[in-house]
């Protein structure tokens, strides 16, 4: 049973297509694991569909006929794409929507070691937007104490961690804003891998880990040198 879900507001924006893509990606990773939120989104989609179905806009008949001809010509040239369902094996813990970014599994990613027990791999960046990355922390390890300089979404993909506010397990969706300062700790039984979406770089607050801050800034798309 998952304990942390996106808010109804977030799910509504998701269903309406009004959420920034990076945040939408994090929501979809949560949906992959959470039947309850999937059902909520299904119902929200129905509201959108009803509004969609009751508004229509035509121009001249000739114009619509021309558009129709274009479509018919395009499909005549296209081969039907019989997309086969992808194989699930070898992709344990990797939700459908992330597979494109993790084609060779977690170990095939380009991990940057930030501390002996904490690694980070960037999946993709939005231009001038959020950094989308995975964090990987060894069993029982404590994350360096840090502060968020913008909104941060975390979705647990594997393992579990806890902080001052509670315990988070696979599929949990945690949204933090810039007021939060916390020190998460991974449970002792297994490593913990999370998807993180950072609107702006994390800032470490420990006296030694502060030295990592330039690295964190370097890999964030808000840094122009990194080129997105």
């Amino acid at each position: 049973m998952l304990s942390c879900h996106p808010t109804l507001d977030t799910l509504t924006d998701y269903s309406a297509g009004a959420l920034p893509l990076a945040h939408a990606l994090a929501v979809s990773v949560h949906l992959d694991q959470c039947t309850q939120c999937r059902e909520q989104v299904r119902r929200l989609n129905m509201v959108g569909a009803e509004l969609f179905a009751t508004h229509s806009e035509t121009t001249s008949q000739e114009h619509m006929a021309k558009l129709k001809d274009n479509v018919m010509a395009a499909i005549a040239n296209s081969q039907a794409q019989a997309e086969s369902p992808e194989e699930r094996e070898g992709f344990m813990h990797i939700p459908q929507s992330l597979r494109r970014f993790i084609p060779k599994g977690f170990n095939g990613l380009n991990w940057i070691h930030l501390t002996p027990s904490f690694k980070l791999a960037t999946l993709c960046n939005e231009m001038g937007g959020a950094q989308i990355a995975l964090s990987r922390v060894k069993p029982g390890a404590r994350l360096p104490s840090h502060r968020h300089t913008g909104n941060e979404i975390t979705v647990v993909l594997k393992g579990a961690f806890s902080d001052e506010d509670g315990l988070y397990r696979e599929g949990d969706f945690i949204c933090r804003d810039h007021h939060d300062k916390h020190q998460p700790r991974v449970t002792k039984d297994a490593e913990c891998i999370c998807l993180i979406v950072l609107d702006s770089p994390i800032e470490f607050t420990g006296c030694l880990t502060r030295l990592l801050n330039p690295i964190m800034r370097h890999f964030h798309p808000s840094n122009a040198l990194n080129g997105g």
């Binding site: 297509g17 893509l21 990076a22 990606l25 979809s28 989609n45 993709c124 960046n125 939005e126």
Partner: peptide
Amino acid sequence: RKNGRYQSDIDPEEFWSEMAD
């Protein structure tokens, strides 16, 4: 997305489609 406003590597078609239930 392709026309600027949301430039990004993320392809909405990959995850925004209805989930197989």
